[in-house]
């Protein structure tokens, strides 16, 4: 079975279900909207208009209304989405790379190395993730690069655990034992036998991780230690929204809804991918 056939089968199974199609369509649209939308809107995300503060949705050409200093909410949601999606995707790519390497090493080298790696992972997992994230964010200078870095730092362990478990499984397979017995070098075993076999599980785990990373960024930014205003992110749009909850609830409701929907769609995509890669089995 060639790699092309495998991925073709996965694609067919994934797009056969409603979840896979809907989530792919949604993610495609939100990415397009966030990266191209701001250029098509008449309002900039940071242009202040004090004559039109707290406009409700659909007033004066502001589709989602305006915030406390008259900035267009739609422009800010799209602009913030750009930041949140970048944090979600970039930190997931980085943490998946780290997690895969660490996990494969731990799975392939039992004994001291594995003990060391699992101990490090267990240590980091002891800390409540938001506690660690906030402390790191408070210590470091806030900004896009910092947020990507610290979200990566607190999320590589999940992938590492998946990669380790899968590597242990694959390593016990007869054909891998055979290749090892024939004296194949480690490099060949790792890249030709183990990596292709554990890649599907890692891709599923990474997709779910994007959802988690977007949520984490929104928490840190909401609590004031993430992306700093006037730059928008999905979390910091809700920073001040609580003050105006009584009079202008949409300032809180709309950005939060977009976060929830996007995170849910990445979760649905992850579930559809898992189902397509290993039909009928739950990892």
């Amino acid at each position: 079975m060639s790699g092309g056939m495998v991925s073709h089968g996965v694609w067919r199974r994934m797009t056969a279900g409603r979840g896979g199609v809907i989530s792919l369509l949604y993610i495609g649209s939100i990415v397009f909207a966030c990266f191209c939308g701001p250029f098509l809107l008449p309002f900039g995300p940071t242009s202040i208009d004090l004559h039109h503060r707290f406009l409700p949705p659909l007033a004066h050409g502001h589709v989602l209304g305006t915030d406390e200093i008259g900035r267009d909410l739609l422009a800010r949601v799209l602009r913030g989405g750009r930041v949140s999606l970048i944090v979600g995707v970039v930190s997931t790519v980085l943490s998946s790379l780290i997690g895969t390497v660490v996990g494969i090493v731990a799975g392939y080298r039992p004994g001291g190395t594995r003990f060391l790696i699992t101990t490090v992972i267990d240590t980091v997992l002891c800390f409540p993730v938001i506690f660690l994230l906030l402390t790191l964010a408070a210590i470091l200078h806030p900004g896009l690069v910092t947020i990507v870095g610290i979200v990566t730092l607190v999320s590589w362990m999940e992938v590492a655990r998946v990669a380790q478990a899968q590597t242990v499984l694959v390593r016990q397979m007869d054909y891998v034992t055979a290749v090892m017995a024939m004296g194949a070098p480690d490099r060949q075993i790792l890249f030709r036998e183990i990596l292709p076999n554990i890649a599907p599980a890692i891709i599923v785990s990474a997709t779910l991780n994007i959802a988690r990373a977007i949520l984490l960024e929104s928490y840190v930014s909401y609590l004031g230690y993430g992306i700093q205003p006037p730059e928008a992110s999905w979390g910091n749009l809700l920073n001040n929204a609580q003050e105006y909850l009584e009079s202008d609830p949409w300032l809180a409701v709309i950005p939060g809804f977009v976060i929830a929907l996007t995170v849910a769609m990445f979760n649905v995509l992850g579930a559809a991918l898992r189902e397509a890669i290993a039909p009928g089995r739950r990892a």
Binding site: L215, S218, V253, V263, N267
Partner: peptide
């Protein structure tokens, strides 16, 4: 799983 905790609280 996808609801931001702070948003659910605000709602």
């Amino acid at each position: 799983l996808s609801l931001p905790t702070f948003w659910l609280g605000l709602v």
